[in-house]
Structure formats: C-alpha cells, structure tokens
Amino acid sequence: MVVLGVLALVALAAWLYLALGHGAFWRTGPGLPAGDDAAGPAGRPGVVAVVPARDEADVLPGTLPTLLAQDYPGDFRVIVVDDGSTDGTADAAARLGDGRLRVVEARDRPGGWAGKVWAMAEGVRAAGEPEFLLFTDADIAYAPGTVTRLVRAAEAEGRDLVSRMATLNTRTRWERLLVPAFVYFFAQLYPFRRVARDGARTAAAAGGCMLVRREILVRAGGLGAIRGALIDDVALGRLVKRAGGRCRLDLSRDVVSRRPYPRLADLWAMVARSAYDQLRYSPVLLAGTVVTLLLVYAVPPAAAVAGAAGLAADARHAALPAAAGLLAWAVMAATYAPMLRFYRLSPLRAAALPLVALMYAAMTVDSARRHRAGRGGAWKGRTVGRSLPDGTAAQR
C-alpha cells in the first residue's frame, strides 16, 4: 500500500501540473472571432486551396462543394491534386468543379518524399504566387465564411500559419469512445496556447486546415524541407516557427471531417500509422511513453480502488492511495470533460479516460511492431519506413 500510495502521489502531482501549468491544454475555446466580412476584394489577399486526394472519389462530393462555395471576398481558387488514384478521383473532382477549380495529376514521386507531402508540393507548384496557401484534406467540409475568418485572423494578428483542428465523426460507439480522447491527447502534446505564444518551442498544426503565408513557406525552404514527414502537419508547424513565423491553432466546428471510422480497426489503424514516427522510432522513447501512460492514467483509478478496498478491510496505510488516487482521477476527469462537451457527449464519460489511455498505449506499441515488420505508415496501399536524419523517409 505504501508503494501504491507514493505512485498515486506522483500521479496527483503530474495531474496538478497538467491542469494548472501546461498551457491550459484542456480548454476548447475561444476559436476564431466572427468579425465583419464586409471588406471588398481589393482588401483581401489571394488564397489558393490545395487538396491532396488519393482514392477519394466517394468522399469529395460531400466536401469539395463546401470549399468551392466559400464566399471569400478576394481571389480564391482550389487545386485538387490527384495522387495516383485508381477510383476516378480526378473525374469526380472535375464534375464538381466550377471556374475556380483546377485538377492536376501529381507527377511520379521522387525518392525520399512522403506521398501526401509530395502531393502538397505539386499543388504549390500549380498555385502560382498567391499570398496564402490553404492546405486541406479531401475529407474536410467547410462552413460558410470559414476561409474569410482564417485570413482575417492571419491579417489582424500577424500570423503566418493559422490552423483549425477539424471536428471528427462521433457517430459510432467506437468513435464516441476514442475520438475525443485523440484530440485531447493531441492538445496535451501540443497545447494550443503555447503554439500561439511567440518564443515558445511548442509548434504544431492540424493537417485538415492549414492557412500558410507563401512567403514564410519559401523562406523556410519550402515543403522540400519536410519532404519525408509522415506527420506533415506538426512538421509544417515546426518549419514555420523555426523560420520566425507566428502560428495559431484552434479547435473548430466550422471545419468538419466527413471520413467515418466505424470500426475499432479503423481507428486503431489511424493511430498506429504514425504513433511510432511521433516517437522518432526510438524503443527508449516507446518504453518511456508506455510507463508514463501507466503511471499518469492507470495508477490513479487502481490506487483509488485498492485503497478503498483496503480501508474497508482496515488495512494499514490504505488512506494515502485511496485519497491521492481519487484526487488524481478527479483532476484527470475534470480536464477531459471540456473536450467531451465540445463533442456534445456526457462529461460522465470522463471517468473512463484511464481505459481509453491504455488502449492508446496498446496502439502505440502496435505502431512500433508494424514499423519493425515493414508495414509502418500504411495508407491506401503505401507504407513508409523510418525517417532518415535529413528528414527523408524510405517509401514503399
């Protein structure tokens, strides 16, 4: 009981730091301001949206029209980059288009380039010289006025990268269990307020919606500087910040993913695809991550339950694990509740976060197993090997 009590105290200290001193990562607001959209075309910089698409013919009809319908009061064009699709993605996009849409076929990918980053670079090549590039995904739908609000935030605040994390699907049981936690853990790794803070080392973006000044991208060396990145959004955020750029990252209900993850296997594959890359393919970091997850997430409920059982049996030293474990569990749940409310789910689900964290730990271990088996980064018929020191990656 004494050892368990000490571990529970360590976990409690960790949660007090996370809740009070870790960039308020658990807060879900405020988002971009509404503002006035009355400025004329002459007052708005040009924007080109780049949409990498690989086998997305079924998804585009529900998303591309929302991008083309943006009433941005300035020059706005959309480029869909067909990244080696076999399902008629290019034709599907062309049928949905108007005069502002251009569909381009990506050239053969050079060695060392991740597939999506190469498709993004092909879109940049076709975009010309707009002031802003909007990198987005084929499964992302936009509420009216979103592009205007993104540009307004960039202009008013002097931001070089404005990113919005899309609201993900929570229709199925597995999505409701795992998706809010996915966003919660991302925010824990990259607290949004630290991303926005000048001088802070924390840098990230959300790949579904990234508005970037073309000038800062050129100054930073272009997408070639992150050509092998499997987690392209975080890599782009770091690239912009290293070049002296100012970033902003928010949660959003105006940007919505239409990609479903109906089965546990779908969500598992999404996480396992890149989790080991996040750990730089290091067994030491993998072991440290698993141990930390166990200490921070599993110890509090285990100590609370064991301590309560010990108190009922008049066991010595049971009060410490019971109290520290319960307090740590309560703080943990309190930091998760805002994300559940954002997804319009009951805050009572927050008590199950330890179980969800253990599932994510298992996904991370499985990610390492897949990479070592040569199946790392699997996505629509492609796999990726370990990133090399110069940022490139072995593609298969």
Rank of each mutant, 00 (worst) to 15 (best):
R248F: 03
A287K: 00
R227Y: 07
R258M: 09
A265Q: 09
V234F: 05
G237K: 14
D233C: 13
R238T: 09
A243H: 03
V299L: 01
D233L: 13
W268C: 00
R273Q: 01
R248N: 01
A302Y: 10
V284R: 11
A308G: 15
K241Y: 14
I231T: 12
R227K: 04
G288T: 11
V290H: 01
S282V: 05
V305G: 06
D277G: 12
T289S: 08
G288D: 06
A243W: 11
S252H: 06
G245F: 04
V256A: 09
Q278W: 09
G245W: 05
I231M: 13
R238M: 02
L285Q: 13
D266F: 06
G237F: 13
A302T: 11
S252A: 08
R246C: 10
G307V: 12
C247K: 02
L285V: 08
G237I: 12
D277T: 08
T292K: 01
V255K: 04
V305D: 04
P260F: 02
Y276V: 14
V299A: 03
L230M: 14
L286K: 00
V296S: 12
A272H: 00
V296K: 14
P262I: 06
G228S: 11
G244Q: 10
V290D: 07
R242D: 15
L294R: 02
Y276H: 12
V284I: 11
V234D: 03
A308K: 00
Y261G: 04
V240K: 06
R258D: 02
V234H: 07
V271F: 04
R280S: 14
G244E: 13
S257M: 07
D277P: 01
A235R: 09
A272P: 00
I231L: 14
R259S: 10
M270T: 04
K241N: 15
Y261P: 01
A229P: 13
M270Q: 09
I231A: 05
D250R: 02
R253G: 11
S274Q: 06
V284T: 14
S252V: 14
L279E: 01
G228V: 07
A275F: 08
D233K: 08
L286D: 09
Y281W: 15
